[in-house]
């Protein structure tokens, strides 16, 4: 349902994406792993056009776009069908938890306040934040902020969820509560792309693992293929260092 071809992007003179190819089928849960700075975040941002690739194409069901001829309608259509969860949460700081989840429904999807409220309350229940619905972000823990971010993303009923290292700026004791919510989301059958450094978690929830290295997809396979029998030497090295670290 989602296919990226030959994505290239550089920041100034540093080439970050060197021709990334990635295709995701409906219902896939794909974890993207790889060393820091290889462009994992950048890749997710390309899908929503938060950064502008120099070249490459994206196909999202019947929506097709060449990044060299970016077109507003296609960008908006893709944005409406995907939802992103950010490493830094990016919960709207001027709104309460409930407003954060409701606002996109009212403003972007033009739902009535009542309907938006109903959906938002259901999603907050799902991530275990009903009690905090009237709190402002400055009053929440990292884990609660990230669960707000996840509820906001789920509320728009996306076809694809994009998680960018959702737990890596959390205190260790808060990681569990967020991973639990993500596991609940991915097991509900929604197509998901997850950038993560939580190897064990990736192995447990994904049906596919993509290893990114130096701006390209260097290995791509089932969790067993990637974790138990890594064929790529850089992948083996990476896994070893990650496991040593954990």
């Amino acid at each position: 349902m989602l296919e990226l071809k030959d994505l290239k992007l550089s920041y100034g003179s540093t080439q970050v994406l060197n021709g990334v190819n990635l295709s995701v089928k409906r219902g896939d849960v794909v974890s993207i792993i790889g060393p820091s700075g290889t462009g994992k975040t950048t890749l997710l941002k390309c899908i929503n056009y938060l950064v502008k690739p120099a070249s490459g194409t994206i196909a999202f069901d019947q929506i097709r776009m060449d990044y060299q001829r970016a077109d507003k309608a296609a960008i908006q259509a893709i944005r409406l069908r995907t939802a992103m969860v950010f490493q830094q949460f990016n919960v709207f700081k001027n709104m309460t938890v409930l407003q954060n989840v409701m606002d996109p429904l009212v403003v972007v999807q033009r739902k009535s306040t009542d309907e938006a409220r109903e959906i938002a309350l259901r999603e907050l229940e799902r991530v275990g934040l009903s009690a905090k619905r009237d709190s402002y972000p400055s009053q929440l823990s990292g884990g609660q902020l990230q669960r707000t971010g996840i509820a906001r993303a789920l509320a728009v009923r996306p076809d694809v969820m994009l998680f960018d290292e959702p737990t890596s700026s959390l205190d260790p004791e808060l990681v569990g509560e967020v991973l639990k919510v993500i596991k609940d989301v991915t097991s509900s059958g929604i197509t998901s792309l997850l950038v993560t450094h939580e190897m064990q978690f990736a192995k447990n929830i994904s049906n596919r693992i993509v290893f990114m290295d130096r701006g390209v997809v260097a290995a791509d396979g089932s969790p067993a293929e990637i974790f138990d029998a890594p064929s790529n030497p850089r992948l083996a090295q990476f896994l070893q260092s990650e496991l040593a670290f954990q």
Partner: peptide, 27 residues
């Protein structure tokens, strides 16, 4: 205003005006 606030609003499909009026402006 944090760059991430722009990213979040953009990725959710807010138009520039909606983003300024609802999120970036108030902050």
């Amino acid at each position: 205003v944090d760059r991430g606030q722009h990213d979040a609003a953009d990725s959710l499909g807010y138009t520039f005006r909606q983003k300024i009026a609802r999120i970036v402006g108030p902050q």
